[in-house]
Write a protein that binds this DNA or RNA. Structure first.
Length: 882
RNA sequence: GGGCGGAUAGCUCAGUUGGUAGAGCAUCGCCCUUACAAGGCGAGGGUCACAGGUUCAAGUCCUGUUCCGCCUACCA
């Protein structure tokens, strides 16, 4: 596995095609509970089996992969457990569509055949996304892959259901729920998406039976009037005081209904009178219960009007709305129509308008489960990151309502309840019941409904580890270390895992919950199929390489902010990948099998400088990863690798790598070079798994996978403040010379002389490292001048009290030089006045900390010195001009 | 209705105990210098949305305003 050196630039396809198989082949991704090390565990948010990789997955998975690889390199016993979710309604819809293409519907196929068909589909197409995760580099332990409907997890679901039922935390009853007339199932409150919709507000006159007076009600859904069984007003509403208790006549159907009072009514809205439809409105349902009103279902499961709707029976609910309005208009009952903006609930899977409907369903009683889940976050047992999501979590948990968990679909965990057809008893059992425990009849029928997909998802962090069995994995890896997820499923999933995790294991399922951003298109719009602005991660990986793609996501992953992905950004990081690759080539040109792996004891200033910088960047990167500030970690790495290691360090050490350098110097230099570069690769392996593995194997020496290397640790003894300062000055001098050369258009080939003027002690370090200045500033020689030296025909700059003079009499355009100096003076003056203003302020001197004041004083001195030199030099130049 | 977030260089965004405003891309010069033109070197560009306040000192803390997102809610 060698890189061909004739390749001029990095070709990601080559590296990406081989290394994943290599890791898998060596079982490097497999976790072993028996191995030592603190455990570090992540369970993947299981993608839907119907899914294919989108940007959200890519970001989510990249973050987790960074964490897993990082902690593995730290020596932790790391497990990343992958899997997929059966995604009840979504999957059923997909397969139903396939069947429709064949001209078959699920009813005619029958439940059993249909389920077989879905399983078959799952086996054939369900694995697509997992292979896509591999392309991303996800270092998951595939030997532990799970599926929410595999045998173990299904048993966990039944077990959980039974335990909750025994505790009275699952119940069955007739309530109003959200019904999707297209999916033909109940939905939980969360599965209803509210969409602001323009509609009408219709005022309808309900006459008193006596005929003397009328009550006018306002409604957005006139068709439901057919199911009205009362009209309600607020008890303190004086407008209706005289009418309370009278009987009204429901228009069209002419049904007598009472006028009653209820606190729920807002007297300020509409007319202050509300029509009550207990069968089709959650509020009305409650009112109906309080007043013992009949509930009349006028809309059936498919959204068609029932026989109760009289003349409208069989009509679609929306057609009926118009028909009812027509009828009311004709008969003079419609007194007013207004435009009205309100929220309409839609099925989150198929976007059909949801119909609130009264029916018999199963529910989880959530309050008792929510309380400990709230406490777990309050106490810090689980941390939510960034913490501003805590409030959202608390708000939802504190106002939680019971969770409707039964679904009238076929694909999912069938509820483990058995109805006795003989005596009517319902039994809830983990294993299929054979006889009625009350009457002994064997005429039992299992509940037809299946569970909400999110019920099994709620068990995911422990069911995947073997629960309800007390497995080795469970005790080793639970509670898990971190959950990485998007905020869109905070309630659907995170909150419920918290509740169930604590209920069944006694412990919150995660140490940390990391909430990351949404990935948007370059214009900042949410990607969606209907908008047609979906960016395919696989396409980006193809075009820019997986590592560049991952690095882009990481660099943009600032906490609490959405990500806009764009080609420009990817290009930049693709170039960075190539930069690292080229640096690898450079290292390979010099280091060989004989190069020492240990750092030599004797180190040049440049070596000590890069090593010192390396310690700092190691700390920054580690801190960034540990605090989930991936953008900070990646940008620290970028900055160091490109602009310090490549731009400065490599350039500085080139001479000592040349054949004419003394052998010992060369060998020492090679050792340091290899050492630092290896550190760079190890540091970035969690970000750039393919590139680093590729280069790692190309370096001299026999090597295993970089995946199993130790992550660099900062060594405080290698940080060297002095050398950082000295080298900083040296670099500034070089920059100053380059600036002058560039501004004055000195020909690149011109070897200028550099005269450094200053106090001997300030010049000492520079004179020791003249060769670096010569090389990087393209100088012919460096000469030191006493402070008394007067640069008559020189271009000049001032850096840290040292005057940099370039004798360029023959080359200088003195007008340009004068304007360059004026610009410098202007800048320095502006800054000086700010600094002086502060130092002249007594309150500043009295209140600001000593080190700040001192820093200002030093700054002032520097600026004055600089101004002094600059203006003197300007005077010289202008004299020359005239 | 409630909550959360955003407004900083032409564009996209960093900026965590308040202490001299940063990056990438784009722009403008110069350069094929033997790792890299997917490159190197240099440069220009910001009254940090607006108005107040706290402080010696505010992009950073507080209050209010405007505009833009998102989440949530049983006003028919």
């Amino acid at each position: 596995m060698e890189i061909k050196d004739q390749e001029k630039s990095y070709d990601p396809a080559v590296a990406e095609s081989k290394w994943y198989a290599y890791w898998e082949g060596l079982s490097l991704l497999r976790a072993e509970p028996a191995r030592p090390g603190d455990s570090y565990c992540i369970v993947i948010p299981p993608p839907n089996v119907t899914g294919s990789l989108h940007m959200g997955h890519a970001l989510n998975v990249t973050l987790q992969d960074v964490l897993i690889r990082y902690h593995r390199m730290l020596g932790k016993n790391a497990l990343w457990l992958p899997g997929t979710d059966h995604a009840g309604i979504a999957t059923q819809n997909v397969v139903e569509r396939l069947l429709a293409n064949e001209g078959v519907d699920r009813q005619s196929l029958g439940r059993e055949k249909f389920e077989e068909r879905v399983w078959k589909w799952k086996e054939e197409s369900g694995g697509v996304i997992l292979n896509q995760l591999k392309r991303l580099g996800a270092a998951c332990d595939w030997s532990r892959e799970r599926f929410t409907m595999d045998e173990g997890l299904s048993r966990a679901v039944r077990e959980a259901f039974v335990l909750l039922h025994r505790k009275g935390l699952i119940y069955r009853g007739r309530y109003i729920i959200n019904w999707c007339p297209r999916c033909l199932t109940a939905l939980s409150d969360l599965e209803v998406a509210h969409v602001e919709t323009k509609g009408g507000l219709y005022y309808i006159r309900y006459p008193e039976l006596s005929g003397r007076r009328n009550v006018v009600v306002a409604t957005t859904r006139p068709e439901t009037m057919l199911g009205d069984t009362a009209v309600a007003v607020h008890p303190k509403d004086e407008r209706y005081a005289g009418s309370i208790g009278v009987t009204l006549r429901l228009p069209i159907l002419n049904r007598p209904i009472p006028l009653l009072t209820d606190e729920m009514v807002d007297p300020m809205f509409g007319t202050g009178a509300v029509k009550i439809t207990p069968a089709h409105d959650p509020n009305d349902f409650e009112v109906g219960k309080r007043h013992d009103l009949p509930a009349v279902r006028v809309i059936d499961d498919a959204g068609k009007m029932t026989g109760e709707a009289g003349p409208f029976a069989g009509m679609d609910r929306f057609a009926c709305r118009e028909a009812v309005l027509d009828s009311l208009r004709k008969e003079g009952f419609l007194v007013k129509e207004e435009q009205f903006l309100h929220n309409v609930g839609h099925c989150y899977r198929c976007k059909t308008v949801v119909e609130p409907t009264e029916s018999i369903q199963w529910f989880v009683k959530t309050k008792p489960l929510a309380e400990p889940a709230i406490r777990a976050v309050q106490s810090g047992e689980t941390r939510i990151i960034p913490p501003n999501w805590e409030r959202t979590y608390f708000d939802w948990m504190e106002n939680i309502r019971d969770w409707c968990i039964s679904r009238q679909i076929w694909w999912g965990h069938r509820i483990p309840a058995y109805h006795c057809l003989a005596c009517g008893l319902t039994m809830v059992e983990v294993d299929a019941a054979e006889r009625c425990s009350s009457c002994g009849s064997d005429n039992l029928r299992q509940e037809e409904d299946v569970l909400d997909t999110w019920f099994s998802s709620a068990l995911w962090p422990f069911s995947t580890l073997g629960w309800p069995d007390r497995t080795e994995d469970l005790s080793r890896y639970y509670p898990t270390s971190v959950l990485v997820t998007g905020f869109d499923i905070l309630f659907f999933w995170v909150a419920r895992m918290m509740m169930m995790g604590i209920e069944f294991t006694g412990r919150a399922p995660f140490r940390d919950v990391v909430i990351h951003a949404l990935v948007r298109d370059p214009k900042g719009e949410k990607m969606s199929k209907t908008r047609g602005n979906v960016i395919d991660p696989l396409d980006l990986m193809e075009r820019f390489g997986t590592d560049a793609f991952r690095f882009t996501l990481l660099a943009l992953a600032a906490q609490g902010r959405d990500i806009r992905i764009s080609d420009e950004r990817l290009e930049g990081y693709r170039n960075f990948m190539n930069k690292i690759f080229q640096a690898g080539r450079f290292v390979r040109m010099h280091a060989d099998d004989n190069t020492s792996k240990a750092l030599p004891s004797e180190l040049s200033a440049a070596d000590r400088w890069i090593l010192s910088r390396l310690q700092r960047v190691i700390e920054e990167i580690r801190k960034g990863i540990e605090e989930y500030r991936f953008n900070e970690a990646s940008s620290a790495f970028y900055q160091f690798t490109w602009h310090e290691f490549c731009d400065w360090y490599l350039e500085m050490i080139k001479p000592s790598l040349q054949p004419d350098a003394p052998v010992e110097t060369r060998e020492r230099q090679r050792a340091v070079l290899l050492y630092v570069f290896e550190a760079i690769l190890r540091l970035s392996h969690p970000f750039l798994p393919f590139l680093t593995e590729e280069i790692w194997h190309s370096l001299p020496g026999k090597r295993g996978s970089i995946l199993t290397e130790v992550y660099p640790e900062a060594d405080p003894d290698r940080t060297d403040v002095d050398v950082e300062k000295d080298m900083g000055h040296l670099m500034e001098i070089i920059r100053a010379v380059r600036n002058i050369r560039s501004e004055l258009h000195v020909p690149p080939a011109k070897r200028v002389e550099i005269r450094l003027k200053g106090q001997p002690e300030d010049l000492a370090f520079l004179s020791d490292h003249e060769e670096i200045i010569l090389r990087l500033a393209r100088a012919g020689k460096v000469v030191h001048r006493e402070p008394e030296y007067i640069p008559v025909e020189d271009a000049t700059a001032v850096v840290n009290g040292i005057e940099v003079c370039l004798p360029l009499a023959d080359l200088i355009d003195f007008r340009k030089e004068a304007s360059r100096l004026r610009k410098e003076i202007e800048k320095a003056n502006a800054e000086l006045s700010v600094v002086c203003a502060k130092l002249g302020n007594e309150k500043f001197l009295a209140n600001a900390p000593g080190d700040i004041v001192e820093a200002h004083r030093i700054r002032k001195g520097d600026l004055e010195l600089k101004l002094d030199s600059l203006s003197r030099n300007l005077a010289l130049v202008t004299r020359y001009l005239s």
